[in-house]
Design a protein around this nucleic acid. Structure first.
Length: 426
RNA sequence: GGAGAGAUGGCCGAGUCGGCUGAAGGCGCUCGCCUGCUAAGCGAGUGUGGGGUGAAAGCUCCACCGAGGGUUCGAAUCCCUCUCUCUCCGCCA
């Protein structure tokens, strides 16, 4: 969330930001509430001051065995007024908070103003699409004919947008998870964590999924527990309500988790295959850093994510999301888009964002600089490193062979018992 | 699921019958002094959030002792609800 004082003092910029994000929000209500709140606050605080003074007098009188009943009578009235005003304030503050929680983050100055994904500038490309002397197939054809992906049975036991992996398909998914974690831990200096796969609502408010995007989440019935839509939520909230010493920063965390998304509002999209599932695996990268270094840390995190595709030798490009495509909480986001020859297109496989202090303010993650008593908000950054299911898709489609088999990238072979190729077992 | 104990500042830890307790004491941290260096020692300072005022430094006020509510002129202290932690029993991967 944005700082209320910032909103108050930079109304024009905030309004412009909303236009750039193609959002229509009325901030006048918030401004009115804010003015109202301060007016009442001044009044009630004066009453409280009077009460404090009187309390001291009463206390003194009692100790000196003097009568204080007159003063006590007077204070009864003051106490009532304070109570009424406090209640009024509580209502106003709740409404203000509701409004503030719905205002998205300010994009970084480097973010291009644009309407949708078509306006996202391509920042870089790596490698080139593989050449096929046959028509490359999409991954669900490859997976089903190899007998490693089974969507029909998954639909039977659960429903649409779930997948059952068999044999070497299941092993390949697991290999990718282990490979990604190993690279990030051993080569990039991240600490591996294995968080809960359910979180409470305050964690989701902390990272920005709530209150605005409730319909995207799976919630457990009768409890304040939600299935995580990304490891970002539990991992960023590790340091919720904490003050971190600057010298202990930056924090680098990586986590494998399944992710659960309701995919409300995407009914027609990507109905076939692994691309858009209600449950998918992801290895996530999360950084908690000083405001001084967050943009450099974002660049490095992006490189860490790219490294996975480079080691797998799969072509991709990186785009920078424009204002119209930028996520609610993000100040700047790079998407890594992997090449999928079976679909002749690039698909998002990682999204790397700097949230600046937007999540930190919500989750109350602060830092204290050496020698300073004043705390300030940390910056949070995260990115997929990578979406595992989509990486498996990329492996299947990019390394498919004319005979229907799929070559395993050399870096993954040690994770698969040195198997070099997945082929149909007869 | 049953029974009990607890939650206080960055950390540890006091808080009597509700009233100079924003909170003793210690640790840590910051600055200064002292010692040839280090350690020790001495002195001062050191929470967060919000408001008013001010160009600013500052001054000043209010709130906060797990969370929320209640009693009261007044609550860290009393009452209720919830959350979490710990112990014992039951169940269980």
């Amino acid at each position: 969330m944005l700082d209320l004082k910032y909103v108050r003092d930079h109304m024009d910029q905030v309004q412009q930001m909303l236009r750039n994000r193609k959002l229509d929000m009325d901030l006048t209500r918030l401004v009115r509430l804010d003015a109202n709140r301060r007016r009442i606050l001044v009044e009630v605080e004066e009453l409280k001051r009077q009460r404090n003074v009187a309390s001291e007098e009463i206390s003194l009188a009692k100790r000196e065995k003097r009568d204080a009943s007159r003063l006590i009578e007077d204070m009864k009235d003051v106490a009532q007024r304070i109570k009424a005003m406090d209640q009024e304030l509580a209502v106003i503050e709740e409404r203000m908070n509701d409004e503030l929680l719905l205002i998205p983050n300010m994009p970084h100055e480097s973010v291009v103003v644009g309407g949708d994904e078509k306006d996202n500038p391509v920042i870089k490309t790596w490698g080139s699409p593989p050449a096929f002397d046959f028509a490359p197939r999409n991954h669900w054809d490859i997976g089903e004919s190899l007998g490693i992906l089974d969507f029909e049975r998954a639909a039977k036991m659960t429903g649409a947008r779930f997948a059952l992996y068999w044999g070497q398909g299941a092993a390949l998914e697991r290999a990718l998870i282990n490979f990604m974690l190993d690279v990030h831990v051993r080569q990039h200096g991240y600490t591996e964590v294995l968080p809960p796969f359910m979180v409470n609502s305050s964690s989701l408010v902390g990272t920005g999924q709530l209150p605005k995007f409730k319909e995207d989440l799976f919630k457990l019935e009768g409890r304040d527990y939600y299935l995580i839509p990304t490891a970002e939520v539990p991992v960023t909230n590790i340091h919720m309500n904490e003050v971190l010493e600057e010298e202990d920063l930056p924090k680098y965390y990586t986590a494998y988790t399944p992710c659960f998304r309701s995919e409300a509002g995407s009914y027609g999209k990507d109905t076939r295959g692994l691309i858009r599932q209600h449950q998918f695996n992801k290895v996530e990268l999360v950084k908690i850093v000083s405001p001084d270094t967050s943009y450099q840390e974002l660049e490095n995190l992006l490189l860490n994510a790219e490294t996975i595709l480079q080691k797998l030798n799969i072509h991709y490009r990186v785009v920078s999301l424009c204002t119209g495509d930028l996520g609610f909480s993000s100040a700047k986001t790079y998407d890594i888009e992997v090449w999928l020859p079976g679909q002749n297109t690039y698909r998002e496989i990682s999204s790397c964002s700097n949230f600046e202090d937007f999540q930190a303010r919500r989750a109350n993650i602060r830092l204290r600089r050496k020698g300073k008593s004043k705390t300030e908000l940390a910056h949070t950054i995260n990115g997929s490193g990578l979406a595992v299911g989509r990486t498996l898709v990329a492996v299947l489609e990019n390394f498919q062979q004319q005979d229907g088999s799929v070559l395993i990238p050399p870096v993954l072979q040690p994770y698969l018992g040195n198997v070099e190729r997945i082929e149909t077992i007869h």
